[in-house]
């Protein structure tokens, strides 16, 4: 659980970097159910950048592109921060090592 929480915080931090100051101004607190598109105003093209950031942060085992290939388009659009964090946590659990830098 603690690991997941840590991963969640890390994901939130990455997304915060992606969205920038906007989060403060929008008054959005990023939570598990915060939606990537609807709440954060991000487009599907922004997932490309997020995927890069995640790989950079957690290593190549975290491959959002591969993960989302199985999602319907609707699901991709409705993606939440929690779903991304859960996926990252699962990747890290499945692998033996600790995340790089984590």
């Amino acid at each position: 659980m603690a690991e997941t929480t840590t991963v969640f915080d890390a994901v939130v931090e990455l997304i915060g970097g992606l969205v920038g100051d906007d989060l403060d101004i929008l008054g959005v607190e990023v939570r598990h159910d915060t939606a990537f598109h609807e709440d954060l105003g991000l487009e599907s093209i922004d997932l490309v950048t997020l995927a890069g950031l995640l790989t950079e942060r957690f290593g190549p085992r975290v491959n959002l592109a591969e993960h989302l290939a199985e999602f319907d388009l609707d699901d991709v659009i409705g993606l939440t921060v929690g779903q991304i964090a859960d996926y990252v946590a699962a990747c890290l659990r499945d692998s033996d090592g600790l995340p790089e830098g984590g």
Binding site: T49, A51, P60, N63, L64, A65, E66
Partner: peptide
């Protein structure tokens, strides 16, 4: 951050697997 490629279905499928493996949507 977006480019589209086009070709015969089998080749496109192979490419999909290849790109995703490299972390590309």
């Amino acid at each position: 951050r977006q480019t589209v490629v086009c070709g015969p279905p089998a080749a496109v499928e192979r490419l999909g697997v290849k790109f995703r493996a490299a972390g590309v949507f």
